[in-house]
Design a protein around this nucleic acid. Structure first.
Length: 209
DNA sequence: ACATTAAGTGATT
DNA sequence: AATCACTTAATGT
């Protein structure tokens, strides 16, 4: 399989062999919910292609975007959750069509002991996630919603590889856990600053935001 | 042409 | 920054 080729330099050959034996190759369509809050994790996903959006949801069903999981990454939450057999604290939704490897959690303990490269991989993804989380916490704590919005737009554009973002103000507001009116105003401000162009259900980013 | 949904805006807290 | 109330604009049937 090509998957082992891709990871040739990251993992030991024996581990790659185990990958092929134990990991299931799964795929989900865009906007499918992969994991919901409260669900217990059964497998550990490693994304091969596509983007997965991780968010928190409060009692009222309001969402707050935490971060995206890119190809060749895994959701850091799953490591901590599934090793302790805890239910998930976050929601995972496929942003686009996603292919991923599902690794049974039963082999996790074993791999952590047997393969240094696996430990390294786990540590690395936890570290990068943690740092990103800190960044978003900063933004929320210091109430710079305008900067959060810009960050969000940049991220979106990077993720879709396009300067055109097909989202309504309402959808954006939901992901940033704020109201549509606020987003509309901030976007209007950005438009006046010649940083973006606004259309219905569509936003165009101009130059480097 | 009409109903529905998205976006813009002033006033208020 | 959030909410309300209301207007205007775009889109679907």
């Amino acid at each position: 399989m090509k998957i082992s080729e891709q990871y040739k330099h990251d993992f030991e050959p024996e581990l790659l062999k185990e990958f092929e034996q134990k990991a299931k190759h799964l795929s989900v369509k865009a906007n499918d919910t992969i994991l919901n809050i409260g669900q217990t994790i059964r497998v550990m996903p490693i994304i091969i292609s596509g983007i997965v959006k991780i968010s928190r949801v409060d009692e009222m069903g309001r969402e707050l975007l935490l971060y995206y999981v890119n190809p060749n990454e895994s959701c850091a939450m799953t490591f901590t959750c599934c090793m302790q057999h805890q239910p998930s604290e976050v929601k995972a939704v496929a942003e686009e069509d996603v292919e991923f490897l599902a690794i049974p959690i039963s082999v996790m303990d074993e791999w952590m002991i047997k393969y240094p490269s696996w430990v390294h991989f786990v540590m690395k993804t936890i570290l990068t996630r943690f740092n990103e989380l800190l960044k978003t916490i900063d933004h929320i704590a210091f109430q710079k919603l305008d900067e959060r919005l810009i960050h969000y737009l940049r991220e979106k554009s990077k993720v879709t590889g396009s300067k055109l973002i097909n989202l309504s103000h309402e959808q954006i507001a939901n992901e940033l856990a704020t109201s549509r009116v606020v987003i509309s105003r901030l976007l209007k401000k950005l438009e006046n600053e010649k940083k973006i162009l606004l259309y219905r259900n569509q936003i165009k980013l101009l130059r480097e935001l």
